[in-house]
Design a protein around this nucleic acid. Structure first.
Length: 318
DNA sequence: ACCTGTCAAGTCTGG
DNA sequence: CCAGACTTGACAGGT
């Protein structure tokens, strides 16, 4: 099994390279010249995209081929206060440069619209905002010139006291999305509501690939053996992409759901060894506080293990 | 330079 | 029905 490691949005190594500089509504409102205020938002967006390009260069220098973009590239995008302001065409040159770099380097990039995007919601306004959010993420990927291999990972959402009904609503709402958006969605099990098996069943129904979060599974399950679920999870990856999993370690015994600074190698390795015989390729997204620093430390830990071939700075063979 | 409270968005819990 | 927690990086305003 060939495994590639990646990390999320920002670097612990590259300094002053935030991909999510922002502006609050309060400070935007204080600016008297609205046009100038909007230009400022666009400048922040350009800066975030430029910093992200710096991160991609850093990634390439360290053989990191898997990366998730920040969902906060453009401050206040979608806020009702800004009406029909559409900064994506304004920033098309920056988006294009970023996408071209990723594509040329053969990197796997993605988005993870955050928990305000909920397709299981019973509220029409929340649903519409969620769809708009997905549309914006899709538009950014298109502006980067990337195809449907660059995907948006989301959770199923809340249960509203009746998980079965919520799941049905998710499936119904998903089916109303434009096909282009549908093709770009992956579904991830969460740490409180929709567990791995429930998420898998929904993913199978709507035909979306499932991203397994091993840590979420550890804190939200009904006794399922995740290695036993794996063949079904893997089968949701019908496109050419290798399956992707999320990996992190619990912060502490008293706070098992929070993410630790680094990733424990042992529990990860036992899962990887269990699925290796049936999995030719796997991409791992590391979700640790120390970001790429955690990735490098995990690689050091892999080097000390038996039966692992180190392929380069960010990938191994097992 | 450093510290603390606050922040667009949604959901859930508890009062 | 409403306030606060959840979670997170970064702003904003203070010293």
């Amino acid at each position: 099994m060939i495994i590639r490691l990646g990390y999320v949005a920002m670097s612990a190594v590259v300094k002053n390279a935030s991909p999510s500089k922002t502006m609050t509504v309060t400070s935007f409102s204080k600016l008297l010249d609205r046009e100038a205020a909007i230009r400022k938002l666009e400048r922040l967006g350009a800066e975030n995209l430029h910093n992200t390009l710096r991160l991609l260069r850093h990634n390439r220098a360290h053989d990191i081929m898997v990366f998730r973009f920040s969902s906060r590239f453009i401050p206040l995008i979608g806020h009702e206060m800004l009406g029909d302001w559409d900064p994506i065409p304004t920033l098309s040159a920056e988006f294009e440069e970023l996408g071209a770099y990723a594509k040329q380097a053969g990197m796997r990039v993605s988005f993870h619209p955050d928990h305000f995007t909920v397709l299981s919601t019973p509220k029409e306004d929340v649903l519409q905002k969620s769809i708009q959010d997905l549309e914006r993420h899709n538009a950014m990927l298109n502006a980067m010139g990337l195809g449907t291999e660059a995907m948006c990972n989301i959770h199923v959402g809340g249960s509203y006291g009746d998980k079965k009904k919520a799941a049905k609503r998710f499936i119904q709402n998903f089916s109303t999305l434009r096909p282009e958006i549908q093709k770009r969605i992956t579904l991830e099990n969460d740490d409180k509501t929709f567990n791995a098996l429930e998420t898998l069943e929904i993913a199978e129904t709507v035909g979306a690939p499932m991203v397994l979060d091993v840590h979420h599974h550890a804190v939200n399950n009904e006794g399922e053996d995740v290695a036993e679920l794996w063949p079904r999870i893997q089968q949701t990856w019908t496109n050419e992409l290798p399956p992707k999993i999320h990996v992190s370690s619990p912060k502490s015994e008293s706070d098992p759901r929070s993410h630790a600074d680094y990733v424990e190698v042992e529990p990860l390795l036992s899962f990887l060894r269990a699925i290796a015989p049936m999995t030719p390729k796997l991409d791992i997204m590391i979700e640790a506080k120390m970001k790429d620093e955690a990735l490098f430390r995990l690689m050091e830990d892999f080097k000390l293990q038996e039966g692992i071939v180190i392929l380069d700075q960010a990938s191994i063979q097992l």
